[in-house]
């Protein structure tokens, strides 16, 4: 009997491991396309990029190992890099809060009871689906000194033309304004979050005598904080990689005032063929993005209120 039962349990165990093995194989088969893609298009390039960042590599000749030289050059000898980094941080520090505040306020306006809501929502959202190149062309014409819409209207009132894209002082803000214009998806995300705020919280706040302003700060903002955090982080990452509009509208000018990280990185890689240098820049970018993400989580994350915490 004893012999029989151990034999039975052994075959049970074997059957169990066989089943588990079979499950593993089937699971792996389903994710295999992604897994292969991860190895080819992500894991290997990451390792290769890390290696290239320690080399001098112009594509024609094989990469030559030069240690930390690229990183040292970036921070000690490349003045343009400092400018570019400063510009990009300006875009993040000014542009991201601008997008957050304006799109959150727009979402609050849209969340009111009103006629034609769908129409207003469409109006706010449409700019964000315009392809970047097309929006570059539209704004090139909008900002055109003398005949673009804005300067044309100014000229009507005999106000001298403003060089929106070629003025050192205005070029950055002109580009940031386009970002705000195209922030429709942030508006939609906020609108989704606002519609999930339970009405009972507002009713309770009214009973407690909270005015509109207090309801906004003590109910609306905390209840939408996960969405705010999400938009803050995604638009921060997007800004660090902002390429098409500065590339097409200002080519980094005037005097590098709008030369941004992704633009300078692209130039190093594909115009100057400094692949190693560009790779080092990419890794520095990655570290900066991680630092900013942690920073946003540290400063804002503690205040984020998740629905699960109620009740």
């Amino acid at each position: 009997m004893a012999v029989l039962s151990t034999a039975a349990s052994r075959s049970h165990r074997q059957a169990a491991t066989r089943r588990e093995w079979r499950r593993f194989v089937i699971g792996m088969l389903f994710v295999m396309p992604w897994l292969l893609g991860f190895i080819f298009w992500t894991a290997y390039p990451i390792l290769a990029s890390l290696y290239y960042s320690f080399t001098a590599y112009d594509v024609l000749n094989p990469p030559r190992f030069i240690g930390w030289a690229n990183y040292v050059n970036l921070f000690q000898h490349d003045n343009l890099f400092q400018t570019v980094l400063g510009n990009t941080i300006y875009f993040v520090v000014v542009g991201v809060p601008a997008v957050l505040i304006i799109s959150f306020l727009m979402a609050n306006l849209l969340n009111k009871e009103m006629r034609f809501r769908a129409l207003f929502r469409t109006a706010f959202f449409v700019p964000s689906i315009v392809p970047a190149v097309a929006s570059a062309m539209v704004w090139l014409w909008m900002y055109n000194p003398n005949y673009g819409l804005i300067d044309n209207i100014l000229a009507t009132f005999n106000i001298p033309a403003v060089p929106w894209l070629s003025s050192l002082r205005l070029a950055k803000l002109s580009l940031i304004f386009i970002n705000v214009w195209a922030s429709g998806s942030a508006i939609l995300i906020f609108l989704g979050a606002l519609q999930d705020v339970p009405r009972s919280l507002y009713d309770a706040a009214v009973v407690d005598g909270a005015n509109r302003w207090q309801r906004f700060w003590n109910v609306t903002v905390p209840m939408s904080s996960p969405a705010i955090l999400f938009v803050a982080i995604t638009s921060m990452i997007g800004t660090f990689q902002y390429f098409t509009l500065p590339w097409l509208l200002t080519q980094g000018g005037p005097d590098n005032a709008t030369n941004l990280y992704a633009v300078y990185l692209y130039q190093n890689a594909f115009q100057f063929f400094k692949m190693g240098y560009a790779s080092a820049m990419a890794w520095v970018l990655f570290v900066i993005i991680v630092v900013f993400t942690v920073l946003i989580f540290r400063t804002g994350g503690a205040k984020v209120y998740y629905g699960g915490q109620v009740d």
Partner: peptide
């Protein structure tokens, strides 16, 4: 988890090696 983590990697990191590949 690895799949989610790859969303954090900026395109610029893989851009150069992908071009060379």
């Amino acid at each position: 988890a690895i799949c989610l983590a790859t969303m954090m990697i900026p395109f610029q990191v893989t851009m150069v090696p992908l071009f060379i590949t």
